[in-house]
Design a protein around this nucleic acid. Structure first.
Lengths: 343, 343
DNA sequence: CTGAAAGCGCTTACAG
DNA sequence: CTGAAAGCGCTTACAG
């Protein structure tokens, strides 16, 4: 069934014909006038949505740049600002405009997202990059239905098969961190991970477990504690580990923030790193370089992840075929001062 | 002289009448068609600019949110990302959209800025917030002429009288830092400042000098070294200070980054902070909290500065009278672990 | 390269 | 609350 009589973009007159009302009435609905019967309004609104009608105000100039919306939980962390700078570098190079929002203080609800998707469709956004835990997979339905491209960076939950995501080789990173500690001679190696269900955390954990297994080192469940990606978790986690009958000689932290917490608690207790305790972080942010001792850490290519997410999104927006719905960039273990042979 | 016959927005027909050509010809110029004589084109273009003609594609919906452009040198520092999060928090609260760009890699030239100003006028941007050293005062002329509101955060150079700027009480902060060290009993106090000509640096320097003077402590020029707001300056600066015949017992650093450099160099040389050297930073970023020992630092309300800049900009955009063209938010000395009585 | 004429898409003013 | 009629602003097709 053809929705419009002509082949081009639907006009206001098309909608009128379709719904059996006059053009002026449709015009009133489009402009949000009051003097329209509720029933007529909803009938017309349905047809407008169905047909993808664009009011003239929404017609963008052909030479206007693509606009990509970017959503972070918060922009105020080394992780976020590095990813963001990668997105911005890509945007400058590709002539794309970035509209930035955070969910800080107002976690996105389903209705808010439906409104956002509608607005993005109206404003003809090229797509959206999401770096947040606030959007679950079902939240993305509103975008899927409107065919607005979405790329998720480092999704907290395993994304649905049709959601495009960009991340790093977390499994390989976890494996490299544990291999490094095993190479140094450690056998009691703790993992102070991130949120248990987080995709990236699971991958790091399994990389770590795989390293233990390949050396025939038994996995000790009491040495694995999950928590938030924050320094507090490192502080409390180390305290809990040291209370064990047989404490670890090394800690693999789920990110640099947790590692900094471990470092702080170790210092408070007079435990020397790396002489008495080895420590590996994850992310490779400036936090790792700047801390004392400088942290051995698994570097994620955060800048590149931002850039890649944007490039992938634009490719999708242009209708190009994507090679893969999951892009993983390489992590790299960088050895600094926080790891040594066990005492 | 009236540019348009009618009182409302100029129409294409108005431009035609004004220039003595037909409406179709003006239409061709507006749409960039080829088949127009160069002379006719330039005559029409002049009239279009003069009259502020807006093509229908540029007419924004009345209910479309205000769009503010934000320009940073780089977004990847604690200072920048905190200011940015303040801007974003304000934007969420005020229903404003933020388009973000950085000058990273491509310092803004005069012509680039003229293009930007023209585009912003076409797209009816509400205004621009600038947190960058790339824009000099003359660069802002293109915006001034088009009456696009601009707010500068922490301008590097003293801004022209008609440029609105938001900053912090740098003089009072410098004074508080030096007063604190003097109170502890220090008399040889160095200042490792930022770029010499930078407005904020000058204010901090003079606050520091004022504190010395009020205690009758002679100002020692050899104890003041300017440089970049980076850790490297702290490292090299401390080395230079320690080479003096009479080295300082305390250092006031122009920002936390410099202070971290001082800390690092002190540690390398086996100098204990604060027992052998007291240290005060500036900015109060997480860097100050996270370093070991935690830095005594003059906190700037960076988040609030971002929020205030946005609020001020929107007030200007709405044509409201501004109380002042220079808003200064209060700094506050936060004493942590890096300062003590001299040995 | 220009513009009179026709026409498109939308809105306005108003009669019912 | 609706829509026929008039009209506005812009564009298109084409004659000169």
């Amino acid at each position: 069934m053809s929705l419009t009589s002509s082949r081009g973009k639907p006009t206001l007159a098309d909608i009128a014909r379709l719904t059996g009302v006059s053009a002026p009435t449709v015009s009133k609905v489009v402009n949000g006038r009051e003097d329209v019967a509720p029933e007529t309004r909803s009938k017309v609104l349905a047809a407008l949505t169905e047909s993808g009608y664009q009011s003239p105000g929404h017609k963008r100039a052909a030479d206007a740049p693509d606009v990509v919306e970017v959503v972070f939980d918060s922009v105020n962390s080394n992780y976020s600002s590095t990813v963001l700078s990668g997105i911005l570098a890509g945007a400058a190079a590709m002539g794309v405009e970035i509209v930035l929002t955070t969910t800080e203080g107002s976690p996105a609800s389903g209705t808010e997202l439906a409104t956002r998707a509608q607005r993005m469709q109206d404003e003809q956004r090229a797509g959206m990059i999401v770096v947040t835990s606030a959007f679950s997979d079902t939240h993305l339905d509103a975008f899927r239905r409107r065919r607005i491209p979405v790329v998720v960076i480092d999704p907290l939950n395993p994304p649905a098969a049709d959601v495009v995501s960009v991340g790093a080789t977390n499994w390989a990173g976890g494996r490299a961190a544990a291999d490094h500690l095993l190479d140094l001679g450690h056998r009691r190696i703790a993992y102070l991970g991130g949120p248990e269900s987080a995709e990236c955390n699971q991958a790091r954990l399994h990389g770590y477990m795989s390293a233990l297994m390949s050396r025939g080192v038994a996995f000790a469940p009491e040495l694995v504690i999950h928590g938030k990606f924050r320094a507090e978790h490192g502080i409390e986690g180390l305290a809990a580990l040291l209370a064990l009958p047989e404490p670890p000689t090394a800690v693999f932290a789920g990110n640099d923030g947790i590692a900094v917490g471990v470092l702080r608690e170790a210092r408070r207790r007079g435990i020397h790193v790396p002489e008495e305790l080895s420590l590996v972080g994850f992310d490779g942010t400036v936090l790792a370089e700047d801390s004392v001792p400088a942290l051995t850490s698994v570097t994620q290519p955060l800048h590149d992840m931002g850039r890649t997410a944007l490039r992938t999104l634009l490719r999708e927006a242009r209708g190009e075929q994507l090679d893969s719905h999951r892009v993983e960039l390489a992590t790299q273990l960088v050895v600094r001062e926080s790891t040594a042979r066990p005492a």
